[in-house]
Nucleic acid binder design. Sequence first.
DNA 1: GCTTGGCCTTGATCTGCGTCAAGCGGGCTG
DNA 2: CAGCCCGCTTGACGCAGATCAAGGCCAAGC
Lengths: 232, 232
Amino acid sequence: MAVDVERTLVRCPVFRGLSGELRALVAGEAVTRTFPKGQRIFSEGEPCPGLYVVASGVVRIFQIAPTGKSHVLHFAEPCRTFAEVAVLGDFDCPAHAEAVEDTVCVLIPTQRLKHLLETNHQLCLQLLQGMSLWVRQLVGLLEDVVLRDASGRVARHLLKADPSAGRSAFILPMLKKDLASHLNLTSETLSRTLRRLAETGLIEVIDHQQFRILQPAALQDVAQGLLPAEFA
Amino acid sequence: MAVDVERTLVRCPVFRGLSGELRALVAGEAVTRTFPKGQRIFSEGEPCPGLYVVASGVVRIFQIAPTGKSHVLHFAEPCRTFAEVAVLGDFDCPAHAEAVEDTVCVLIPTQRLKHLLETNHQLCLQLLQGMSLWVRQLVGLLEDVVLRDASGRVARHLLKADPSAGRSAFILPMLKKDLASHLNLTSETLSRTLRRLAETGLIEVIDHQQFRILQPAALQDVAQGLLPAEFA
DNA sequence: GCTTGGCCTTGATCTGCGTCAAGCGGGCTG
DNA sequence: CAGCCCGCTTGACGCAGATCAAGGCCAAGC
C-alpha cells in the first residue's frame, strides 16, 4: 500500500502548478494516512490536523445538528483536498470527515504547511486559487438549496455530475442517501424525484447506480425551474 | 465626499495586517467609487471589476433565480470586502451587488490587484486569511439554512448580531425583508417568529428596528433546536 | 391637507416535502 | 443454505412555512 506522495500531489490541481522542486519540498513535509471504510478522520471542533489530499478512496465531509440531522457538505474524491480552510484561517475543524470507503490520504500537518506558506509565494498563490474554488462551490450549493426545488436540485446535480452530458451512462459514485443529504433532501424524496424524471423520459434509469441523460435541454430547463413540477 | 483610501484600508481586517509601506502601495492602485442608494454595482456573470472595500454605506450581495426568487448572500458593511473571490479565482461575478443606501467603496481593479499579488507575499497571506473567513461564513450560512428551522435561524442571527449579548438594545442594520431573504424565510414568517420570541419573553421588541435579548441562554437553546417550537 | 407607495404585520389557506410505515432485493455471515 | 442487515422504493399522512389577501403605519411628494 505504498503511496507515492509526489505522484498524488502532481495530479492535484492545487499542487500541479508548482515547480517540481517546490513540490518535492512539500512532499517532504507530508505523511500518508490510511483509513478503513467508515472510520472518522476528524470531528467538528477538534484542532485541525492539517491539509489532506485524497490519494485513493472517498471522504465525506459533513455537519451534524443538535437535533441529529446531518448534512453532507462535500465528497472529496481522489486528488481533491480538504481541511485546508481551517489551517489557513487558524480555527478548529468546522465539520466532520469520514472515510466512505477504504481511503488513503496525504497529510501536510498544520505547522509544516504554515511554515511552507510563510516562505513560499508560489504555494500561496496556488492555495488562493484553491480557496476561491471552495467559495464558488459553496455559493453554488447554497444557491441550489435556497433557490431550487427538489427536481431542480436533482436535475442540476445530474447535469454537473455527468461528464459526457448524456452520450453515455454514468455511475453515481456515492450512496443515494448521501447524495440526498448533500442536496438537502430525504432519500425518499430523491427516489420519487428520480422516478418522475424517468417517467417523463428526461433520464433513463439503468440500474440503482447508473443513469443516462436522455434530454439534456429539458433537464436544463428543470434545473432552472422553468418547467412545471411535472415537467409536462 | 473625499475619502481617505488609506484610512479605509487600515480599518479593514484584510489590509490592517500589512506594513504601512505596502498599504500605501495598495492605496496607490485603488480608486474610489460612489453609488447612490439602490444602484447596481455589478451583476452576476459580468467580468469582475476588482476587489471592493466598503468605506461607508452598506452593499447587498445577492442571487436571483430564473423563477424570480432572490437570496441575499451577504451584507457588506463598512470595512468589509467583496468580490475578491472572483478576482482571485479568475471568474466572472457569481452574484449581484447593489447599494442598500448611499455608499462609497474603494476599488482595487482586477489587473492591478493581480499584479500586486504576484510580487507581494504579505498581501497574499492576508487574502488567504480573508478567504478562509469567507468559507467559514458560507458554511455557517449553509448550516443555518439546512439544519435549523425558522426560529433557530432567527435566534442564531440575533445572538450573532448583538454585540452586547442582551445588555443593551441593538438596531437591525437592514430591512426586515432583506434579513428574511438572507435567512431563507419570507418576511411574513420572520415577522411571526419574532412575535413568538417576544411573546415568550426571550426578546423584547422596542420598535420595528430595535430589539433587546432578555434571555440569552434560552435563545441559545432555541438556536440549537433544543426547545420545542413554542419555546415553552 | 391628501395621496401614493414601501414596509411591516396578521390571519386564512395551500402545498412540497418530511415523516412514518411496510415491503423488496441483494450481499454478507455463519 | 437460511437469516439478517441495509439500502432503496412506494404509499399514506402531517406539518412548517409559503402564498394570498387585507389592513396599518410612516415618509415623500403634490
